[in-house]
Design a protein around this nucleic acid. Structure first.
Lengths: 194, 194
DNA sequence: GTCTATAGATAGATAGAC
DNA sequence: GTCTATCTATCTATAGAC
């Protein structure tokens, strides 16, 4: 586990980059082999079948998404800044390709549902934290709502392109936060300090 | 345009069925040819390249989704019934495969964005109508919010499976409608008539 | 562990007869 | 319009040498 040059990790990184840039459909053995600098048969030495590779890549992808969630939108700043940060993160096409890849895998094979659930759980925790940082005391339903909305905005952003996607995300998220704040009985100051 | 046996339509129907059941990745010329009962080369007579076929299928798919939106959730009934109808529609994996296919196409080739936009526009009109039927006077932002949420719930449903997907959709939609009703200043009676 | 070579399957596309 | 046949490219997987 320690002495090896960790070719396995190199392969996984190359494979992950391919999925992030071109989606799950582009994940083929020849491409990954070339990108990681090993022969194709060597790749199958580490990942005997394509399914093994896909599984390992998506596992790594989920772990990566979860780990990177923290840095994406560091907590303090204004509410408006947090909202913009979230909108920007949701407009990241590469992250969305990972998300969609997992959805495709889970749709084609229910064995991947558990993996998707892992991601959902982490995302919801993140969503809850964000709402709390904004001074709210969200219910479980509201956390699920924000998470589902984020999923939709991310997918839309992939189809609309970053500019339009970001605009839609910002508008929609602002409206949700307004509704949540109003429900909580706490007026959100319209931030007219500029 | 009139005298032909409309093999073209037969081919498109078969191709659409494949996308609905197995996703865009399963849309291959041999499969479509077999399913529609024509030879593969005959298929290419109507659709010279695979790109032509994909384009035609997605165009037809969007037209179909838009046309079927009306029947999916006919307006009157209780608010709770409308909500359940929407949740059920969002949990239809086949519809979601169409949606995801268009997103994948638009992500890979911006030329498909216009097609996606057509779908979004129709869905938003439907969303607005539903909110109005529920007695609300939604703003454009609120319509966008409901649409984006529906997109996210549909995608989640594809990954989670119909049972879980439907449960999540119902819970989340109920919460959004509650927030919207509260914002509008009109209490929604909890429907305790049963 | 790492490679070359290749088998076997499937996909996209074209040629050409009818 | 419709077909058979085929070419080429690409992919998954395996065999076997080093």
């Amino acid at each position: 586990m320690t002495g090896t040059t960790d070719i396995r990790a190199t392969i996984l990184a190359a494979a992950l980059a391919i999925v992030r840039k071109q989606g799950l459909g582009a994940l083929t053995q020849p491409r990954v082999a070339k990108a990681s600098g090993v022969s194709q048969s060597h790749l199958t030495y580490y990942f005997p079948t394509r399914a093994d590779l896909v599984r390992a890549v998506l596992e790594a992808a989920v772990a990566g998404q979860i780990a990177n969630l923290g840095s994406a939108m560091a907590s303090r700043d204004s509410q408006e800044a947090r909202l913009a940060g979230l909108a920007a993160a949701l407009s990241n096409a590469e992250n969305t390709r990972i998300l969609v890849s997992i959805v495709l895998a889970a749709d084609a094979d229910p064995a991947y549902r558990e993996l998707y659930n892992r991601l959902v759980t982490a995302m919801r925790q993140r969503a809850e934290l964000m709402l709390r940082t904004g001074g709210l005391e969200p219910t479980a339903e509201q956390v699920m709502l924000l998470h589902a909305l984020g999923t939709g905005l991310a997918v839309m952003g992939a189809a609309l392109g970053p500019q339009t996607g970001r605009a839609v995300s910002t508008t929609v998220l602002r409206e949700l936060f307004r509704l949540l704040a109003r429900d909580a009985g706490q007026r959100t100051p319209p931030d007219e300090t500029t």
